[in-house]
Design a protein around this nucleic acid. Structure first.
Lengths: 338, 338
DNA sequence: AATAGCATTCAAAGCGATTTCAAATTTTGA
DNA sequence: TCAAAATTTGAAATCGCTTTGAATGCTATT
């Protein structure tokens, strides 16, 4: 069922039918009703490709993901959040999977040149993000989840990682901990660097010296966290507190602590960063987990909103949001053992 | 940079340039090289919408997800698997988010009518899946992850849920357990029904009577599993073994067991279904977790492959795959206490 | 009654690719 | 050497929509 068919069926021109369906004013109200009603009855839907070709808009927002490890729980929550906002808009998410960083850059280039998407959502930036520069060059609208330093204005939404970790660290210091381990994300990623800054700031504010052996950088899996924690617990004096970069990390740390015969919240404390997974609740863990909390899903929803605003013409200079992060104290963090 | 521009730049017709780029045989080798080289140098990429309109293919595979709860860890693994296979093909995944079941059906209808995607991946089917019927009616290619009973041939890939749970249950019975709880998925979903069948079959094969109080149906979150387990552990005689529908469920069950002062693998046994999450390894849990294991990611990859085959013309009657499920015994399952 | 103005409608020209069909050129074979 | 065949190129139609600019019919005004 094409527009042409529908027009013939109605005894009208394509022009009029198109206008009627798209709500243009210069069409008789009676005609409009007849058109809309018939279109609905016959189940007419404009061909997406034709529509896109004619309007220049693609009706999709793009995201490029590294297949091997970027499809994690964070990503699905983030996508869910984006989707929640986009559901009303009849705009879809176009996922492109790639294997390497080079492929990723190429994917943005392709996506831009072929106009598959109206805008991109860029995530997990590095301190100086090449992809952001590329998209700026190509003049493709995008919003960055996180921040980067490329000397040009970029639309972004980020959480206050520095502040969050600084407060968490300070709290642990208040509790008497002096050997505080940080299991952080991959070096070079802005969020990880920001967290490190907060960590170091809190330590130096109390004159506690920084021990590189107490810091680890890696992707957030329970396995790597387990191994790192095992190794750190061998140190003497051993760490009495852990800062976990994610809930997955927290599970690994927790496991290592138990395996070492130690008790979480008593012998060793932990504060984890919680992206708020509906299927893994910090409050319901045993012992319940102290966290720095910020909902990934909410971020996604807001990111979608920001993209829509940008597509509607809002200047990117006005699109910057820094979200505060809650510190939620529960049982996993307690006074340092004597 | 349009095809037209490129053609003018080269002093050739659009026809020839198009042919050269698409590898048609009737173009001079020297010309082809010149065209390809220039296209590359100038960064030419065909406009996706125009290409789609002209060819009728959209270059994307669609998936519809309920925003509220279908973006879970299973989904991201599955998407990751699909993406892995699609990465080489320059085919993308088009995600449509919806809020209700009605919206979902409408989304398939829209997607089909507007030809946004070349095919759909259908997931989490019910015993008699309306969406599958719709897509068959609309003649849109699709592959089903799971199975459904609609009396017409459908392409599908499923794991042997019945066999897996039957074996797991039998094994627990062998270990002397008689009160075995099943924390299953939502009623009506084929996979959950299949698991129930396996469970009941194993019980009745040993003449163990089924106690409805030992069966729970819900989405797989640690919280709900925790509550259900708490309630079940109050029963007298209480269950001595649990079958967990997912690793998330397993975490909840584990928590409830610990909170009740019981020891997993000794006082209470558990076998969980493991979709193989890279960030949550059954082998690395403490105690390590016995599982029925089947990689969600691999399923996704294979689903993508099957879709490609169907789009290449393979008859859907020939696309049925039932994957066996491994039973991996570890520390969480032991002999029933006396 | 003639004209201006308004409300509706339509034919046709795009959007940027592919593809059909025809034309031009070169090669081959007798 | 010349016709036939093969190779290579191009003009124009096509995909299904939007949108421009023109045309139509009707009402209102003088």
């Amino acid at each position: 069922m094409r527009l042409k068919d529908l027009a013939e069926h109605l005894g009208l021109s394509q022009t009029t039918v198109s206008r009627a369906l798209n709500g243009y004013p210069e069409v008789n109200e009676a005609t409009r009703l007849r058109v809309v009603e018939t279109a609905k009855r016959l189940g007419y839907r404009p061909n997406a490709s034709a529509l896109r070709l004619a309007t220049g808009r693609s009706g999709a927002i793009g995201m490029v993901l590294r297949g091997s490890y970027e499809f994690g729980p964070h990503t699905s929550e983030f996508l869910g959040g984006i989707g929640e906002r986009l559901a009303d808009e009849e705009i879809d998410i176009l996922l492109t999977t790639v294997e390497s960083f080079e492929d990723e850059v190429a994917a943005y280039r392709r996506g831009a040149a072929s106009q598959k998407v109206d805008a991109f959502i860029l995530h997990s930036p590095t301190l100086h993000d090449e992809r952001a520069e590329l998209l700026l060059d190509l003049k493709v609208p995008f919003v960055l989840h996180g921040r980067t330093n490329i000397g040009k204005p970029v639309a972004w939404l980020d959480i206050d990682n520095t502040g969050a970790i600084e407060r968490a660290t300070s709290h642990l210091l208040d509790l008497g901990h002096r050997r505080i381990a940080l299991l952080n994300g991959i070096k070079g990623r802005t969020f990880a660097e920001h967290r490190e800054i907060g960590y170091l700031a809190a330590l130096s504010a109390r004159g506690v010296s920084f021990d590189p052996a107490l810091m680890g950088n890696s992707v957030f899996t329970d396995e790597i966290a387990f191994r790192m924690t095992q190794a750190m617990l061998e140190l003497r004096p051993r760490p009495t507190a852990f800062l976990a970069g994610s809930m997955m990390t927290a599970l690994g740390i927790f496991r290592a602590i138990r395996q070492a015969g130690l008790e979480l919240g008593k012998d060793v404390s932990m504060i984890a960063h919680d992206d708020v997974f509906p299927y893994l609740n910090a409050d319901n863990m045993y012992p319940s987990m102290s966290t720095t909390r910020s909902s990934m899903r909410q971020a996604g929803t807001r990111m979608a909103e920001l993209i829509l605003q940008i597509l509607a013409g809002k200047p990117i200079e006005d699109v910057h949001e820094l979200w505060p992060v809650e510190l939620v104290l529960r049982e996993s963090s307690g006074p340092a053992p004597q």
